[in-house]
Design a protein around this nucleic acid. Structure first.
Lengths: 358, 358
DNA sequence: GAACGCCTTGCATTCGTATTCACGACGTTG
DNA sequence: CAACGTCGTGAATACGAATGCAAGGCGTTC
């Protein structure tokens, strides 16, 4: 083949820069760089002829100002750091979608940082984002939010617009986006009770996490309010994952002789999926033998067999709210974040109890 | 050294910038700004004492260089634009996770752009990313990749490191990450045939899309190679969504008197989920009455009732590969992207045919 | 003992854009 | 007709960090 010794063989990798700069445009249009800037920003009136000339050149070269350079001057990068967690899980990716959609149209872009399980790495991911000069941060609550981390986050909130999703950090409560987890747990459990269930198991989320704690509290309160007893053996600690759901079922079933149950309230849909499969393997019919209520209403939940009755979190909207809130904060506006109400979505995984089967 | 008065009441909103700059650090450490730069980059040897002094100040103020400013000089922003599609769908978010994970550890960050259905908006999203000065782009293939768009992408590839996921753009084939869709379709269909099925329906993906076309082609070829007839009535055009899967089942069932079938090969798992639910509602047992094979092996597929037999795409790894490829391209290296092989994951949604039920 | 060279360092410039400042031209007013 | 304000514009500067260049210090060598 052609040895390409005639005209710079490596050009392809050299030529790879946004060649046209504002100064270049100015030169071609026969004006000064400042004028081009003014045309672009409309900051001052520019004589129509020059304006037209500039615009034409811009059009021809498909020029777009370098955002990084703008950022250097303005001190803004038009970037929002999003520290994600379990990227790829339906719950978080739906939040992310909300964030991205709400940012679409503004000139802001989300930049993704990868959260980890370790506070140390987590923090370094955060600081990497920070050194990028992001104008705000949306933090999906780490599992290790407490104590020292809480303080750190408060300090952080002093320095930069910050929104925390899924946790309530003392000191910056109004920058924390959270749902009424307690009410959700209460709602789910009450619904089961109304359907005649009196022995209701609960598979919790990962335990130090606030979501998990609150949902369990709601569950307990509902039992108590309806004159039922809280049976510790019917509460299994989980971790929000499918596999733990399946494991928990094993445990529940192992003790079902002494501690029978006719329904399970699972702290999130993902785990409920695992629960449902485990019951399938055990030959236990849902909802005929065991009723199931989940939490989240993930997209996909409605396609379960049978479609899952669950507590809907407006996950997508929450993402949007978080987005709008940081942007507002970044614009210097006041924000006010209410606890987000939840809704019971009744589908077909709950049946009226006839008796306790297990 | 009382340079500023202690009266700063509204500090919170004023102080919200990365106050410490390199020059500031230099001043405090009693050296020049260049020296600080050299300490940070290790570009030149710096006398240990000064180095220590600088590092100490840096540590104390928790200073981190402003990446945007670095980018201005180096011409790199250490950002990779990711034009996503269906953010929130399990398939794409898993890819995104792969991308993010592979980028973790490098100093690069993914910046998310939101793809749309319209070519125009899509392109403007792309250009917004471009004006950010991203060092590379990962493009999840739009549905409208063909003709003019193909040309545009080729031009784009000249200007910037570009990786396309899920499509094969003529001219830049080696920058396109794609799977062996044909083989996948062939594999799935052959497996059903081996299990005694002779009337196999197929629900395709969104049709102009290459993935969909290739999978269907593989399906057809498998039938032919095994001496079976391709029955057009058993091929239903879908669009990769759950709801279309359910609809397709209706259609198939409506004609099942004349065109019976005992198995369905669905072009992706998401649609298979819808199919499965529709069959549930119709009271048709899976796999006893109808066998099901999906495509993708999304996380979650294994928790279906029954667990779905499917063609595994290494989605997460594909994300990582895309990431590594852009980064390599950005570093001026050569890359070589092979078509990714697929694997049949046998679970429990396929049974040996006894006869054609429907 | 002086010249040479290496090591370290500071100064000045650069990146692309926004913005302040000053200047010339023009129109207005007294 | 002169003084002054206004408008449009270009030149200069700033943003934060990297880097080429030159200068100073010191050790080495003949």
């Amino acid at each position: 083949m052609s040895k390409s010794n005639d005209a710079m063989p490596i050009q392809k990798s050299k030529d790879r820069k946004q060649a046209v700069t504002m100064t270049e445009i100015a030169r071609l249009a026969g004006v000064s760089q400042s004028t081009v800037s003014r045309v672009l920003n409309g900051s001052t009136h520019v004589i129509p002829e020059k304006k037209a000339a500039v615009l034409q050149i811009i059009e021809r070269f498909n020029y777009r100002p370098n955002i990084a350079a703008q950022g250097l001057v303005s001190g803004k990068t038009l970037q929002i750091g999003v520290l994600t967690r379990h990227l790829g899980s339906p719950y978080f990716s739906e939040i992310l979608r909300g964030i991205a959609v709400a940012m679409d149209g503004s000139n802001y872009h989300p930049v993704i940082g990868l959260g980890s399980e370790s506070p140390r790495e987590d923090r370094s991911a955060l600081e990497l984002l920070l050194s990028r000069g992001v104008d705000g941060i949306i933090l999906q609550a780490p599992q290790h939010v407490q104590g020292i981390d809480g303080d750190y986050l408060c300090d952080l909130a002093e320095a930069i617009p910050l929104i925390v999703i899924g946790a309530c950090i003392p000191g910056i409560e109004n920058q924390c986006l959270r749902v009424k987890n307690f009410e959700g747990g209460y709602l789910a459990t009450s619904y089961l009770i109304e359907n005649g269930h009196i022995a209701i198991a609960h598979i919790t989320g990962k335990m130090p996490i606030e979501d998990a704690v609150q949902r369990r509290a709601g569950y307990c309160q509902a039992l108590i309010d309806h004159g039922l007893e809280v049976v510790p053996e019917l509460i299994i600690e989980g971790n929000f994952s499918e596999s733990i759901g399946a494991e928990a079922v094993e445990t529940l079933l192992a003790h079902s002789a002494r501690y029978p149950f006719s329904a399970i309230f699972v702290a999130n849909d993902q785990a409920a999926v695992g629960v449902r499969l485990a019951l399938f393997y055990k030959g236990i019919a849902v909802p005929e033998q065991v009723s199931l209520v989940g939490f989240d209403d993930l997209p996909g939940t409605q396609y379960m067999i049978p479609p899952l009755t669950t507590i809907r979190q407006p996950v997508f909207q929450m993402g949007m709210m978080a987005s709008q809130a940081v942007l507002a904060l970044a614009a210097g506006e006041e924000i006010h974040l209410d606890e987000i109400p939840l809704e019971l979505i009744t589908r077909q995984s709950v049946a009226f109890r006839k008796n306790i089967h297990l």
